[in-house]
């Protein structure tokens, strides 16, 4: 496929669910330990952390683990009050023992959040939520960021062995982290631009043919030509690659 260029920092590869959950030092989070802790809390807990610190990613992976253990874990992402009915329906429809995973719990506010908790008690389901601050749930994990974490995330992106150190260097990653005050999402956007800038001389619209100045076309192609993976019915995230 001549001319195809894929960027490993695109939202497809960096959105929650696509990145393995890592702790602040960049080491993989032991999901089994977290699940044991969650069970210790009675099944209801909150993942707390600042903007862009990996809360949604961790939530997605924990939900996947719960489903792999044969439990139902419907996932709801709240953007605004308009999404609260969906959360209500999910809790209402949940069976006893299910874990309803709600991203951005603070969107509910105190009153609606309280009502949702009461509904969860009535239905007998558990709640696993993410929030920027404490919301009255037991705290499962406090997410923090570090340059090491960003380096680990970048090191886990598709075909990293082909471009890491050649197109994106360690200093690029540290610089992006520093530029955005530890916000991983914004750091990844900056790295997207850096990667795109490195790939750009390949060809341009309005040009007269395919010119590969860098020899990177083959590398980029390998990143996205095909992908596969498991997903689960009702999962809001597509789980490819």
């Amino acid at each position: 496929m001549p001319g195809m260029v894929s960027n490993p920092f695109s939202t497809r590869h960096t959105r929650p669910g696509s990145i393995a959950p890592l702790d602040a030092t960049g080491r993989p989070v032991d999901l089994d330990v977290l699940l044991d802790r969650l069970h210790g809390f009675g099944g209801t807990a909150a993942i707390v952390g600042p903007h862009g610190s990996g809360k949604s990613t961790l939530l997605t992976h924990l939900a996947t683990c719960l489903e792999r253990d044969g439990r139902r874990a419907p996932r709801i992402r709240l953007h605004s009050w308009a999404d609260i009915p969906a959360a209500w329906r999910a809790i209402h429809r949940a069976a006893p023992g299910d874990t309803v995973c709600i991203d951005s719990w603070e969107c509910t506010g105190r009153l609606v959040g309280g009502l949702l908790r009461i509904l969860a008690r009535v239905t007998g389901c558990h709640l696993l939520v993410t929030s920027h601050h404490r919301v009255g749930f037991p705290e499962l994990l406090q997410c923090t960021t570090s340059p090491a974490l960003l380096r680990s995330i970048v090191g886990g992106l598709p075909a990293h062995g082909l471009w890491l150190g050649k197109v994106i260097h360690a200093e690029d990653i540290d610089q992006a982290f520093a530029n955005h005050g530890g916000n991983l999402r914004e750091s990844l956007y900056e790295l997207y631009d850096r990667f795109e800038a490195a790939a750009s001389p390949i060809q341009c619209v309005g040009g007269d043919g395919s010119i590969d100045h860098t020899g990177l076309t083959g590398i980029y192609r390998k990143i996205h030509e095909s992908a596969d993976g498991f997903s689960y019915v009702g999962a809001p995230e597509r789980n490819l690659g």
């Binding site: 489903e67 095909s226 993976g229 997903s231 689960y232």
Partner: peptide, 11 residues
């Protein structure tokens, strides 16, 4: 409740 998806890009 499990499914497996395979995606193949073309131009």
């Amino acid at each position: 409740s499990r499914d497996f998806v395979s995606e193949h890009v073309f131009n």
